[in-house]
Design a protein around this nucleic acid. Structure first.
Ligand SMILES: [Mn+2]
Ligand SMILES: [Mn+2]
Ligand SMILES: [Mn+2]
Ligand SMILES: [Mn+2]
Lengths: 219, 219
DNA sequence: ATTAATTTTTAGGTTTGTCTAAACATTTAA
DNA sequence: TTAAATGTTTAGACAAACCTAAAAATTAAT
């Protein structure tokens, strides 16, 4: 049914992400995201809008059409399922999966992805805690709360980490925090925003506000 | 270390296969194999030989250099490991794996392939019975005998099927022959070359010469 | 040994996706 | 409210990987 080039797919995905994160998408922001030049963005915007994937008026910006959003979600589904596979089955580290999935996501067999999904047990979140759209493109829109804003003594599950660097992975390992951990905030120090967490009845850890802003939990 | 485009990889692989099957490679044969025009072959031959992957003299034909052979084996390794994965883990049919692997083989992470190999238990043959090169590019060169030439009463294991069509799969299913089956030829009818096979002490099947020529066994 | 047929290469185009430099629009600042 | 800065689009090129049609080389047939 659908068949887009790897380039088109990367553009659709990037537009979707920028739209979700910042509300609107600009030519420069997209060029920055995709490591291309603004002129290339304009070229591709014309192409995608002529294919009905984008609403585009010169100088007025652009946004995904219903069809474009649908296509983007298919690619995001592929990407996150592959990330899950790499981490869960092949033992890749958290911080290594993204780069490889960036290539695997362009393999376009629908059967492949649906079988993979089944084989993996229909996972709900990728290794970074981001939700995986189902085969109909529906995405779990559970509202995630940054740990920095979690009310005191409210238990919650860690499901997503915004920053995906090696340094972050290292720090989380040290603090014994992982995707799936159930956590509650025991105390918030207003001076620097640092938090005292309770991980298990007998295990507490102190984390910085900066770290807390990058950890997302589900109530 | 190495990084070739998908096109270059497909050419290298096709040259390797034609070289192995027919001894030499011609412009037309290659164009035929790759569904392109002879002119496109000449273009790519210049490119690949300028990269040192090919020995090429205009009008005199071409053959893979040592480096080209090495690159081809890496791609064949990827292809066959993915085929094995699709058949073994995701439940794809024999006849469905090739098409998808044709795309997956171009994902270039060495770590991905080596981890996949390990995850799959270092398989020796793909679902068609073709040998899988190891991570150093060494390929199992076990000589395979077409079932049509197997001596009477010599037990042997089915390891490869040359024709990969759905029709073939259907016929083999009907005759209860699969990769891994241990077989011996009980009688050869010289009139039409058909064979009476013994599959288990109490199970015999008659197969045509045409089928027997497409089934390869290991002694 | 010419001529004819086949194979291979060259010449010149096309499409996709990129780029730089210049022009044009919009936004911000003086 | 004009000028400067910023953001976006156009114009024109380029490389990769294809193509068709014509030319050149090789091989096969008279
Ligand atoms: Mn990608
Ligand atoms: Mn992810
Ligand atoms: Mn391929
Ligand atoms: Mn195979």
């Amino acid at each position: 049914m659908l068949n887009y080039s790897s380039s088109e797919e990367n553009y659709l995905k990037a537009i979707y992400h920028l739209q979700a994160e910042t509300g609107k998408v600009t030519t420069n922001a997209l060029a920055d995201e995709l490591n291309t030049r603004p002129a290339s963005i304009t070229d591709m915007m014309k192409k995608l809008s002529s294919k009905g994937l984008l609403n585009y008026k010169p100088y007025y910006g652009f946004s995904l059409s219903a069809e474009g959003r649908k296509a983007a979600l298919i690619i995001i589904r592929r990407h996150r399922l592959w990330e899950f596979f790499l981490a869960e089955k092949l033992g890749f580290g958290w911080d290594e999966v993204h780069f490889v999935a960036e290539e695997l996501e362009h393999v376009s067999s629908k059967k492949l992805i649906d079988k993979l999904d089944e084989y993996l047990g229909f996972p709900q979140f990728d290794p970074h805690g981001d939700p995986i759209p189902n085969s109909k493109g529906k995405i779990n829109t559970t509202v995630l709360v940054p740990l920095a804003e979690l009310p005191i003594n409210q238990p919650a599950k860690v499901v997503r980490v915004a920053n995906k660097s090696t340094q972050m992975l290292e720090l989380l390992g040290d603090k014994k925090i992982a995707i799936g951990s159930v956590i509650q905030v025991q105390k918030r120090f207003d001076f620097d925003g640092s938090l005292e967490l309770r991980l298990k009845p007998s295990l507490t850890e102190i984390i910085s506000e900066q770290l807390a802003k990058n950890i997302f939990v589900q109530l």
